[in-house]
Amino acid sequence: MSIGVDIFSQELKHSLSNLSINELREFLNKSSLPASLRVRNTRNEHISNLNKAYKEEELVLVLGAGVSVPYNLPSWGNLLQKLLFETFNNSNTNTDVPLVLSKLFPELFPNSPLISARFLEEYFKKKDTEKTFEEMVKEALYEQVNRGADSPTIKEILQFCIAPGKSPNLDSVITYNYDDILEGALLSSNVEIPFKSIYKVGMNPKNGELPIYHVHGYLPQEQEIDKDYSITLSENLYHKQYNDIYSWNNMVQINKFKDKVCIFIGISLTDPNIRRLLDIAMLQKGDKPKNHYIFKMKYNPKEVERNLEELLSRNAPLLNEKVKANLNLDETSKQLLIKMEEFEELDAASFGIKVIWINDYKEIAKILKEVRTS
């Protein structure tokens, strides 16, 4: 549930480690992609386009786990670890043992988080416990939550949400988070903001209500969790959502991706179902599609250089060639960084999304304010 930057993907690491020095140079020195495919518009152009969409009441905020990070909610990996702790806790009296085992288990037996979540869901469904799986997830989710945390991004999102019934008006919010951080902030604000959390079929906002679509499910902290509060956590539920193209949550996403201008905040483009829905929406947009926008953290050049040096040091034949050829690590890492960002921009562009590069997450609030007020 947290976001971060993976400096080199496993596939890229493997590919680079098998390149000769001449092949590496050829990769780095290949001519740039055609100008028609370039997506490096300036930040001011992005802000201007987003402001236009906001004034035309076509702007949708799409929120991922990164938005909730300041409130000390667990990452997805940590959430699964908390649930795994409970499976060991049932058979041990020493409270330290389950904690150690739950940390060691995924390291010794690495598995896909989706597969791990599926195991945990099936385990707790079959286990005779007083709590449902969703209740246990909710407990783990809010165990150390800090609702008093300062989040400039959430504060700025609230400014967008104040307008329901007025003009300009935010179209809606789509969130992939289970938590009620945004709802809590709305209720705690000094301004009465009508909104409706939507997490199942048949729920519709009234006139003047801002819809907040929890398309992966919703687990509000203070409400009793019943069967309506199912969440998309494990592999089998992802498969169900993937196969049911006409489910309410898929239809909401397709319609917003097709007809509105979305800005993705605190989210990556790695979820296969989101990528599929963006593809479907692209096919339905027509000849002059509207662009979406996504915030992405720029890669740290020094961190890229450190990773490259570590990669080369683990590959003796390539390291020897590097020494002979006097390969400049600083220059090489810079060229790799440029190429990687170009790849990411082109990947996003294939879904009709333009990248707004940032150097610090604090920039997001500043840019959102410019979108709202420019």
Rank of each mutant, 00 (worst) to 15 (best):
F295Y: 01
M203Q: 09
I356H: 06
H46G: 07
N255R: 08
N236H: 13
T332M: 06
S230Q: 12
F257W: 06
Y71H: 02
N236F: 11
T373C: 05
S268K: 10
P301D: 03
L50E: 02
N44A: 09
P205V: 06
Q241E: 14
L278G: 00
K166C: 12
T332G: 04
G266N: 08
G4V: 03
P289L: 12
D271K: 08
R147C: 08
N29A: 06
E222H: 12
E156M: 15
R275K: 09
V69T: 08
F85T: 13
G352R: 03
M340E: 15
R147S: 12
S91W: 10
L101P: 04
D96W: 15
G286N: 12
Y123S: 05
P211V: 07
Y293H: 04
S2P: 02
T42K: 05
L318Q: 11
A325Y: 15
V137R: 01
S32P: 08
D271T: 06
P205Q: 05
T270H: 10
E57H: 13
L120W: 09
L73M: 12
E23Q: 11
N320I: 15
L104K: 14
L186R: 03
T175D: 05
K334Q: 13
V60F: 01
L59D: 02
V69M: 07
L158R: 00
L327A: 04
P211Q: 06
Y238E: 01
P152F: 01
I174C: 08
S31G: 00
E310G: 04
K260P: 00
N320E: 15
E222V: 05
Y176F: 15
N250L: 02
V5S: 07
K200W: 08
S374M: 04
F160Q: 00
S234T: 11
F27D: 07
N320G: 11
M136I: 07
T270M: 07
T95D: 09
Y123L: 02
Y293G: 01
E363C: 09
L99W: 14
D128P: 02
V261N: 00
F109L: 09
K258I: 01
K354I: 09
D330W: 11
A140P: 00
N328E: 06
V201M: 15
Y213F: 04
D6C: 13
A53V: 05
N326Q: 15
A140F: 06
I3Y: 11
Q284T: 03
L319Q: 12
T153D: 00
R40Y: 00
D150W: 11
G184C: 02
N49R: 06
E222W: 13
K127Q: 09
R40G: 02
N18M: 15
A281W: 00
L114R: 10
K260M: 04
Y361F: 10
N320A: 15
K131E: 14
G4F: 04
H46S: 13
S15C: 13
D180M: 03
Y246D: 05
K258G: 06
Q241D: 14
L73N: 02
E57S: 14
Q253Y: 14
K240P: 09
I162A: 08
W76Q: 05
I263V: 02
